[in-house]
């Protein structure tokens, strides 16, 4: 095995499995000329134009300043997963209907699939990777593990984001109803809702005991 690259399931998909899939799904846009740019006959007045084509943007991602290039049609989800290979945020429905791609933008829970990459210029984005501090899982993440709040794990990143946002904005003891409200947009088809609620209550209890 000397010199062989270590293969992981994720690495395998990234390396060659997913590339042709992505290429074949790119749709009509990939082979077409870019959309018509702002033309000299149609000058911009009191406005700036971004694109078509790649354009730079600055953001803060999980506490670090980043400068990236993204096309106007790239979603924040595509930027995170496909371009920056930050894959904790999951893609499931791609229509804002499942909560798997929830991230925090300036502390607010948002669907990364319904946000354009250029929407987060100058803003602070926190993904599930940003919930841990110095590599140590947050109390909420520990409670998820201890109380078995996940099965397949596909909803987990989004659940953690929704519940973290609730923990940071809620004052006093948490109610079940508050947690149910916070995860009202997070689908879990394994049916781990009860454990998610228990884990969030536990993390809130731990916090108030401090």
């Amino acid at each position: 095995m000397t010199g062989a690259t270590k293969l992981t399931r994720r690495g395998l998909l990234r390396g060659f499995g997913a590339a042709p899939v992505i290429a074949s799904c790119a749709g009509p846009s990939s082979g077409e000329a870019a959309a018509e740019a702002v033309s000299p006959a149609d000058p911009l007045i009191d406005a700036v134009a971004i694109g078509p084509g790649l354009a730079p943007l600055d953001l803060r991602l999980n506490g670090a300043a980043r400068t990236v290039e993204a096309a106007p049609q790239a979603t924040l989800l595509a930027l995170l997963r496909d371009q920056l290979a930050i894959t904790g945020t999951k893609e499931v429905c791609d229509r804002g209907a499942c909560g798997a791609c929830n991230v925090l933008i300036d502390g607010e829970v948002r669907s990364a699939c319904m946000t354009l990459a250029h929407d987060v210029a100058g803003r602070e984005v926190t993904t599930v990777e940003g919930l841990a501090t110095s590599g140590a899982p947050s109390p909420l993440q520990r409670a998820f593990v201890e109380l078995d709040a996940l099965q397949c794990g596909y909803c987990t990143s989004g659940m953690l984001i929704s519940c973290s946002a609730l923990l940071s904005r809620a004052r006093g003891p948490l109610s079940r109803a508050q947690i149910q409200g916070a995860i009202a947009g997070n689908l879990c088809r394994c049916g781990c809702y009860e454990q998610v609620i228990a884990a969030t209550l536990s993390a809130a209890g731990e916090r108030s005991a401090l």
Partner: peptide, 11 residues
């Protein structure tokens, strides 16, 4: 999504 431009008007 097909390519497009983002236009950011101030007025």
């Amino acid at each position: 999504m097909r390519p497009f431009s983002l236009i950011r008007p101030t007025t």
